[in-house]
Amino acid sequence: MAISNIWVFAQGNNGAPTTATLELLTKARTLGGSVTAFVAGDGAGIASTLGEYGAAKVYSTGDLGGNLPGVAVSAAMQEVINAGDAPDLVLFPQNYEGRDVMSRLSVALDRTVLTNNIDIAVDGESVSVTTPVFGGNTLVTTTFTGSGPFLAAFRPKSFPVEAGGAAAGEVVSAPVPDLGTVGSAKIVAVHVEESTGPKLDEAAVVVSGGRGLGEASKFEMVDQLAKLLKGAAGASRAIVDAGWVPYSMQVGQTGKVVKPNVYIAAGISGATQHMVGMKGSKHIIAINKDQEAPIFGIADLGIVGDVHKVMPKLIEALQAR
């Protein structure tokens, strides 16, 4: 039994597939099986783009009607599997929804899950995934044993996004069955924390601030610099936990993965959990008053200095241009 039936957990946002979905489809296309996108939500509207990136077939749950995806989408997947279309491999994004659906499905199918991966290789029947540990310094490759479906989740930006599939895939309805009390978690209101400028995980320049800023009001410098460079502002977890900025700005293992052209870290020590989220940046600039700070170990330009002195001067110099 080769790996012939590959599913990708797919999501749409504002009428287009999410970047994470396209990354996984791009990779799935190279693994040598037929590729199906399983859309959590309405699949018909995004089917043509999913096809372009490699989905020959699209399952669509339709609107989730306020259900959290974990229980609902895994139940819809199970219905399809019970009806005879069982995947050999399912690729999930390592995000809120991907993680929840994968966890539920793993129990339903009694199969293990491998999470936090950045790469996958298929060799005949064997599927191996690669996970960075210790802040990305060590790469561990794990091979699934036993029988499929194999369930694996991938960190964002693990794969490039490239079109190259075919026409719109066939759309097949995969509705969410009646869930009973296990499906009682319902979204009753949605709150979006507005941010202006480019999105953190898509910006060409990211300026992040950490505890070294000293106090919440000093984050203004980070915002200002980001704006001047037409970039996005990010943060270390230390100042997210402290309540200075919202979680949506967190960069790192439990936050966003960014790979901008330029990443500027201001008053950030460079903990391994922060570094896994920004190490892939093309160019890294760090400002830290401690010359022993680990962030200097990966910075292309390191400034040993006080953010309260360097940042205002930098902002002034840029404004003067």
């Binding site: 191996s128 310094n137 790469l139 561990v140 794990t142 200097f296 170990g297 910075a299």
Partner: peptide, 20 residues
């Protein structure tokens, strides 16, 4: 599952570090 390989990731080189 079985762990089949453990490797060092290519290290990122530190660049220039200057005192302000």
């Amino acid at each position: 599952q079985s762990i089949t390989q453990v490797a060092q990731a290519p290290a990122r080189q530190a660049g220039e570090v200057v005192e302000d």
